[in-house]
Write a protein that binds this DNA or RNA. Structure first.
Lengths: 137, 137
DNA sequence: CAGGATCCGGTGGGATACTG
DNA sequence: CAGTATCCCACCGGATCCTG
């Protein structure tokens, strides 16, 4: 929605100032912002995994969503899907060069999250106390 | 969905290895992964803004979603909402200390996005060519 | 100006059953 | 094992109208 960033490659510094919104961050967020992509990436950071291995490692993911998630990641060139012509079928997934570079970002995200989760949690429950009625979720 | 991370404060290293999924990244992603939060943060990185200023700056956001977004950011202690008892009402929003620190992450996201968007775009259209039937979206 | 209250459609994602 | 095919629902987010 909205005619976004598809063509313009502005030479604006990315988000240092807010003259130009979006900045193209949406591209990344639309990918890693979903429910499972990050978890798949994190798991694959430990090395190649087969389909079932991923499903067992990632608690709560349905086989449908795992399929969709790896497909999208593959489409974006973040992971590589290899099919071995055995029987029964055997497939493994591994991070590509690009995917691996994303790992650093994910690491940064995790670090930030861990160092701030306490403060955030406190802010939340304080907000919920002072605004008992507000239903934000 | 799934009894997540609410209590456990494991001393596991964050995602260096993938022994433990989640890692708490979900907390952050659930916040900045949505459609508008990042844009609000980026805009506020340029200084305090009033409600209408934000709405005008962030192209396409509805007043409802802007309200919800700033409420959630406020709840998490990422932005500060100040009401001036004037008439008509005047309110401004600004990043807190925590919110400002998030800006760095957003910057990293934007940088990564910009340096990889070309590769990703190419990977996508190549995938779409080799898999014309697949409907991933 | 800064929202609150509704209505409503699209879709992300779960559960289940089936296949090569 | 590694998926595909359906069904279905919660909820995210847009549009619109109303208020202090």
């Amino acid at each position: 929605m909205s005619p976004t960033h598809t063509a313009v490659t502005t030479d604006l510094d990315p988000c240092g100032r807010a003259d130009h919104p979006d900045c193209g961050i949406r591209d990344v967020l639309d990918r890693i912002g979903d429910k499972w992509s990050v978890l798949v990436i994190v798991e694959l950071a430990g090395g190649p995994r087969r389909f079932r291995e991923l499903q067992r490692a990632i608690d709560g993911i349905s086989q449908r969503m795992l399929t969709l998630t790896v497909r999208r990641l593959e489409r974006d060139g973040l992971i590589l899907r290899t099919v071995y012509p055995t029987v029964p079928a055997q497939v493994d997934y591994r991070l590509t060069e690009t995917g691996t570079s994303l790992t650093h970002l994910v690491k940064a995200l995790a670090d930030w999250s861990l160092t701030h989760r306490a403060v955030i949690a406190e802010a939340r429950q304080q907000y919920d106390q002072t605004h008992p009625d507000h239903d934000i979720r």
